[in-house]
Each structure stands twice: as C-alpha cells, then as structure tokens.
C-alpha cells in the first residue's frame, strides 16, 4: 500500500501521521520530545515500523515544526514546511469550509485566518508563553491534577474565579492567592481557562476577524474546558477535529503527497525505517571567525557529516547542503 508520512518535530511534542493515498489517516503517534529530538524521532520510527503491515511502502515524507530541518536530516524528507502552512493544509482537509483556525501547542499559539480555502492572515504569539500547553501542564501538576482531567474538572465549575491571564507569572500568583482564600479547584481551573482564552484573543488574535467555522487544534484542544471557554467568549461553535493532536504532522504528510504526485518520476528521499537504527549525533562548536561567536551545530550519521547550521555568515553551512 502506498503511504505518506508526516513528522511534526515540536518543542514539547513530536507527532507522526501516516496517510494512505486518499489522505486517510492510517496511524498516528504522539510523543513527548523531552529535549531529545533525535532520539524521539527514532523512537517514533521504530514504533511505526512495529505496528505496520509489511506491504506498506512510504512514497513520500514531509516534516514540519520548529525542528523540521533536523527531522529532515534524520529521516530524509521530500517536503520541509513551516507549521503554519502545515496546520492550515491539515485543517482544510478535515473541514474544507474552515475560516478560522485556533492552534495552541506546547510552546506557541497561533491563529490562522482563511477565506475560500486560502490562508489570508495569521499571527503567532510573540513574546510570552502564558496560555500555552506548557503553562497549563505546570499548573495542573501544581494542583496535583492529571492534565487529561483538567478540562473535565473545569467544566464542573459554576462560579469561575477571575484570574489575570496576561503573564504566566502573574497568573500563577493569582491562582495561589485564590486557592489560599478557599476557592474550589474547579472554579480556579475554569477561571484559568477563561484567562487563557482572554489572553489569546487579546494578544494573538488581536485585530483579526474571527468567522465560523472555527477549528480548534493542537495539543491543548484536548482540554474541553478551554474549548468551552472559547465558545462562550466567541459566541459561536468551536470544532475540534478528530486528529487535533497531530494536525501539523497530517499537514506535512498531505504536502508530501502533493509534492510527489506532482512529479511521479521523483523518488522519495526517505532513508527508510533503517534510519531509526543508525547512529546519529549532534556536535556543536563555537566559531571564532568573528565576534558573533556563532554556535554551529553539526549532525553526523556514523562518521558522515549530514548537515551543519547555526552560522550567520554561511561559512560553515554553505558547503554542506541540506
């Protein structure tokens, strides 16, 4: 069977999506990157191979996410795409009429505005990570609540308390203050959901025209409390697609499929699942060529230099094309 693989190497999670030639998702994997992107990719490849039928043939690979370049070096990608385009492509494949995409991931959040199936505007959070997945994770941990139950508990609240959502540090001290006054956990959680949504709409979505259908995706879309808070604040229904947690990977897979089908002659760059068993290592050094002191990263497979980046002037990256 012909398949296409998408890999989204993000700061917090690394996702895999395998689609068939009709674009249907056959297999998806959601892993924590845990600061070890190379290992995580290899683990994902191993898990994929164990689960798959032997007649599967990978015809194309796409990578996205902040580590898209690194992922491409390890697996051999046909398409390397930024996560905004990848998310938009994936969303369109699930809900073709979509006009607004709200995406909240581990370290960043974005809004994408589409009209007639074309991206017309987008924005990403610029300076602060308040209101992204990592922050929610941390607060759930502090309250001793499994992150999976966060939304469910928040939905029980009848009197949400008001929490300042402008900054992660202020939000946390606000929460502690409320907790010491004796507010119920569910009211604090619901308050946090509302604060996060307020912050998102005031900062990331500032000045953007939000029209339905609104799609909510990214890891945080699993949180029903946030979804509800969005619906209340926007006054419209918010849709969470089935594969909300791997939309970036799905988009990358679709883009790989498109790239290969445009040029049937082209063979995929995919190194095969064997890539998971090869030894990769990253080495860094500080270039002393000028006062910029760029930190140059070199990726090796065995003894072979696969890629180099991090230099501003191109002195090191130029001779090794990625």
């Amino acid at each position: 069977m012909e398949c296409y693989l998408g890999i989204d190497l993000g700061s917090v999670s690394t996702n895999f999506a395998l689609i068939d030639r009709y674009g249907k998702v056959i297999k998806k994997i959601y892993l924590r990157t845990a600061g070890r992107p190379i290992e995580t990719i290899k683990n994902g490849l191993k898990m994929l191979r164990e689960d798959l039928d032997s007649d599967i043939e990978i015809k194309g690979v796409g990578t996205t996410g902040s580590g898209r370049k690194l992922a491409s070096v390890i697996v051999g990608a046909d398409v390397v795409k930024n996560e905004i385009t990848a998310h938009a492509v994936a969303s369109l494949s699930q809900i073709p009429e979509v006009q607004t995409i709200l995406e909240i991931g581990g370290q960043d959040s974005k809004i994408i505005i589409l009209r007639d199936g074309v991206v017309v505007d987008f924005a990403m959070n610029t300076v602060c990570a308040a209101g992204t997945g990592s922050f929610l994770d941390r607060q759930a941990q502090r309250l001793g609540i499994p992150i999976e139950l966060f939304g469910e508990i928040a939905l029980k609240s009848k009197n949400p308390t008001r929490i300042a959502g402008r900054c992660a540090v202020f939000a946390e001290s606000d929460m502690i203050h409320k907790q010491q006054l004796g507010y119920k956990v569910e009211d604090i959680l619901k308050g946090l959901c509302q604060a996060l949504v307020r912050n998102y709409l005031a900062n990331v979505a500032k000045g953007k025209e939000i029209k339905p259908p609104v799609v909510f995706q990214g890891g945080v879309a699993a949180n029903s409390g946030i979804k509800k808070a969005f619906e209340e604040e926007l006054g419209m229904e918010v849709l969470v697609p089935e594969h909300y947690d791997v939309m970036g990977a799905l988009g990358a897979a679709i883009l790989a499929k498109k790239a290969i089908s445009q040029n049937r002659q082209k063979k995929t760059n995919f190194y095969g699942f064997e890539a998971a068993f090869k030894e990769h290592r990253a080495e860094t050094f500080e270039c002393g060529g000028c006062p910029n002191l760029c930190e140059v990263v070199q990726i090796y497979q065995g003894d072979k230099l696969m890629a180099r980046w991090g230099d501003r002037c191109g002195r090191w990256s130029q001779d090794v094309a990625v």
Binding site: S66, K81, N82, E83, I84, T85, D108, F122, M124
Partner: peptide
C-alpha cells in the same frame, strides 16, 4: 521563530 513566520508569509502571498 522569525524564519517560520517569513516562510508562512511567503506561502500566504504565493497562494
């Protein structure tokens, strides 16, 4: 982060 935004913007105007 800057590169991601630039690439996405270029995709947007190209499309």
């Amino acid at each position: 982060g800057l590169r991601t935004r630039l690439e996405a913007f270029v995709d947007l105007i190209r499309e």
